[in-house]
Write a protein that binds this DNA or RNA. Structure first.
Lengths: 336, 336
DNA sequence: ATGAAAGCGCTAACAG
DNA sequence: CTGTTAGCGCTTTCAT
């Protein structure tokens, strides 16, 4: 196939210097005569030479590829979360000149990733073993979006418990007492924590949340629709005056269902989301929500990993980022 | 950092065979004595040996990494298209045991990708030069979602003109004569072709499309909302009886706006989308749309590229996949 | 400032 | 069936 590739030798010959000098120019080492630099650069241009990265890596031992491993459960790719992670990691890699190797995993396959300089695990569901393996192989690792207690691993996560609390607090302070919620996927840590924080804070504030006000969703619009239809078909006296949907996407669906059923948002029911998905700014009313800095988390994870790979960082990284209330128009004080 | 890595030599020593034999076992070459296979496998397990992929590549010359290059224009990551591409390519790579290196590009940086076995360009906007470069460097390339006429390059695309035609035809055959459309981003080929096919077929069928019925959107929900508000505020006699939104996402927004404004879909206005986004099956009414097989296209592209890399395929690949009408509930015969 | 030479870890003839 | 040996293309001492 590929016509004979041009190697460093060809460049050296063309520039009439040794391959060592060529190597120095490529790696921008300071100890090269300007004249030679110029000659080499010309040769590189003329021959369209590109160093063979495998050889560079083999010889130098270092490695600027990082892996992004994501669980492949259904729906994840349509979630705001996944997209933001990919964007964030991709962006940071681009600016740090790292290569990003993307892996979708179901946790079964062993993930032969030893040729990677480091690995970012975006959430870990069924693939904890892969994390352990990578650590055993001495590959720098970082888990994103998961507070990991039972493994000695680096992580950077978002304080979802806090997020849930923020939401409960805000709604109660607006005077609401009949507050329903639609959970995300409770098998994910983020989903569980959001819910947990919400319930705990409600309890602290002495507002009861009856069972029928808790709908177990899974982040899909479909589940949100079911939930909304269920809540809105309750009779006036029982119907919640506020709904906390634990993702913006679900909140948007709740609003859509409301319009279909002739229920006004926020006059009849306040709706609150979670994510700060830009989609939720347009639409009939701007959504009040809890912002979680996913993109920033993703970017930061790359920077941290990069430091680890280069030995610029020792010890465990355990970071929790704070979510933040974003007040817009979809929640108003309770009139009841 | 990384503790001394275990090399093939260590394994050979441990198993008391030559490194060649170890190599043979690793590569599953048939000519090895079962006893030795066993010994080597045990040594590999005991030492947790993992071959160094850079060395393998350097020595063998082949390469199972493929690049996925995507233009990074705003919004692309929230589009159904991008997600499906990533999913499709990721999935195919997983099953073919290829590694996927993901690149977001703005077309500026030269994309040093010569260490890749092949590259998939997902749509090309401002980065045609990168394609040319890759070809110059003899790297197998495949462009997705773009019919490329002016460059001798492989592509696999979707016949969007046909898709636009399908939609025009269906709506006209339902008796509609006042048909409006919201275009996607016309700077993308897919967006332009969709629009072009629609207009041509309308013309062929002798149905005029006045300027005010054409809204130049950009695939964003926001643009769809603007368009819908514009169309729906026309007075009865001029208001379109059908709207062709050139993405499902936009169609969904049109429907949302309709509900907010008290316009019934499809009784008052028929709405048609484009994509076959599964999101559009739920919601108030199942959306009639044009299906474009993006996931399949992405998967197929990996398979084709894989064949090219292995020399199992010669000559240019120029494939156009056919879109297909998906009739659901959002379009009904015109009553006017 | 420059070059010669010794590997990096692995594969692939080539002998045996 | 197995081992010896010569590279793959590059980086990195170590002299010069």
């Amino acid at each position: 196939m590929a016509a004979k590739r041009i190697s460093i030798k060809d460049v050296a010959r063309h520039a009439k210097v040794s391959i060592t000098t060529v190597s120095r120019v490529i790696n921008k080492l300071p100890t090269v005569n300007p004249r030679n630099i110029k000659k080499v650069e010309e040769a590189v241009a003329a021959l369209k030479y590109r160093p063979n990265i495998s050889a560079q890596r083999l010889a130098s031992g270092d490695n600027n590829m990082i892996g992004l491993v994501m669980p492949g459960y259904p729906g994840i790719f349509h979630s705001f979360f996944a997209i933001e992670i990919i964007r964030g990691v991709g962006h940071a890699c681009e600016s740090l000149k790292l290569d990003m190797v993307f892996h979708i995993t179901d946790g079964r396959n062993p993930l032969t990733a030893n040729y990677l300089g480091g690995i970012i695990f975006a959430d870990i569901i069924e693939n904890r073993k892969q994390v352990q393996d990578a650590m055993d192989e001495n590959v720098p690792c970082l888990v994103i979006n998961n507070v990991v207690q039972d493994m000695d691993v680096n992580y950077i996560a978002i304080n979802n418990v806090k997020g849930g609390r923020l939401s409960a607090e805000y709604l109660v302070n607006l005077g609401h007492r009949r507050i329903a919620t639609i959970t995300g996927n409770l098998r994910t840590q983020a989903g569980f924590d959001r819910f947990d924080g919400f319930m705990k804070r409600m309890d602290e504030m002495k507002v009861e949340v009856p069972k029928e006000y808790v709908f177990r969703g899974d982040y899909s619009r479909r589940s949100a629709r079911q939930a909304a239809e269920f809540f809105f078909s309750m009779d006036e006296g029982r119907r919640p005056t506020a709904i906390f949907a634990q993702s913006d996407d679900m909140a948007l669906e709740v609003i859509a269902v409301a319009y279909e059923m002739g229920i006004r948002i926020p006059e009849d029911v306040s709706v609150m989301g979670f994510d700060d998905n830009p989609q939720a700014i347009y639409g009939p009313i701007a959504l009040t929500t809890v912002r979680q800095p996913v993109f920033e988390m993703a970017e930061k994870s790359v920077r941290l990993l990069h430091d680890m790979i280069n030995g610029r960082r020792e010890g465990r990284i355990k970071i929790e980022l704070e979510p933040e209330l974003v007040v817009r128009d979809s929640c108003i004080p309770c009139k009841a």
